[in-house]
Amino acid sequence: MTDELPNRCRLVLIADPKKGGGMEAPRVLDALSGGDVASLILVGGAVEDAEFQKYCEAIVPDAQARGVAVLISGDSRIVGRVGADGIHLETGKAEIDAAVRKHDGRLIVGAGGAKTRHDALELGEAQPDYIFFGRFGFDADPAPHPRNLDLSRWWAEIVNVPCIAQGGSEIASAEAVAATGAEFVALSSAIFNGTMKPSEAVAAVNELLDRTAPRFEEE
């Protein structure tokens, strides 16, 4: 990674150890060696707590050393145990608001789960660090889900809270997300389940975004 961050949509990686052979810790770390990655969201879900914590411990220090912010999905206990940078929550406004106040800038608090504009505005009132449009594990189609693109385009035009929009299973899907004005594109299958090594896929995404993503206005 270079010292200067790209002034365009950046990549967020979603890594879920329950997805089989594609997302073991070594493959996640290989992905981070491929180029610019803004952040990494580690998803536990059905994995046992001890197994998930071990998985996170194998990734977090190396990722942070590369300048990548690491968030844990849903489990604040593991955030503290592994020294992660933040937590991703898919709950209601009250829970998001409580987390934002509790962590008070010490941890990144991200909000997911919005399926409508009304949902998104409710979550946005809690002032999370970002809002996520998409669902973990639902990126099997080559293109992004149209709802993710519609919500991202609408949100980027009217709200200052940054948004992450989930792409599809193909690297090319990052271009459609960037065109909405989203600050970040989230990819998982496109990085870990394709024919390229994860590092090669990350490099290809960054090359695509360098060529095609709109540039943000300088403040």
Rank of each mutant, 00 (worst) to 15 (best):
L5V: 07
L5Q: 10
L5R: 14
P6A: 13
P6Q: 10
P6R: 14
R10A: 02
K19F: 07
K19M: 15
G20D: 04
G20S: 05
E24Y: 12
E24G: 15
P26V: 12
L29G: 09
S33N: 04
G35N: 13
A38S: 11
L40V: 09
I41N: 03
L42S: 13
V43S: 10
G45C: 05
V47L: 11
E48C: 03
E48T: 03
D49T: 13
F52P: 06
Q53C: 05
Q53Y: 02
K54G: 15
K54F: 08
K54A: 15
A58K: 09
A58H: 04
V60S: 05
R66V: 04
A69C: 02
L71V: 08
S73K: 11
S73I: 06
D75V: 11
G86V: 02
E95R: 06
V100K: 08
H103E: 14
I108M: 13
G112S: 03
G112V: 09
G112Y: 07
T116C: 02
R117S: 10
E122M: 12
G124T: 01
E125G: 12
A126W: 00
A126G: 09
Q127F: 01
Q127E: 14
F133K: 09
F133C: 11
G137W: 09
G137P: 03
G137I: 01
P142T: 06
P146D: 06
P146Q: 01
P146S: 05
D150I: 02
W154L: 14
W154A: 02
W154E: 07
E157S: 14
I158N: 10
V159T: 04
V159Y: 10
V161Y: 07
C163Y: 06
Q166M: 14
G168K: 10
E170Q: 13
I171F: 14
A176H: 00
E183T: 00
A186H: 03
A190D: 03
M196H: 10
S199E: 05
S199D: 04
A201E: 02
V202Y: 07
A203I: 02
A204Q: 06
L209A: 07
T212E: 15
A213I: 09
P214L: 08
R215C: 07
E219F: 08
E219G: 15
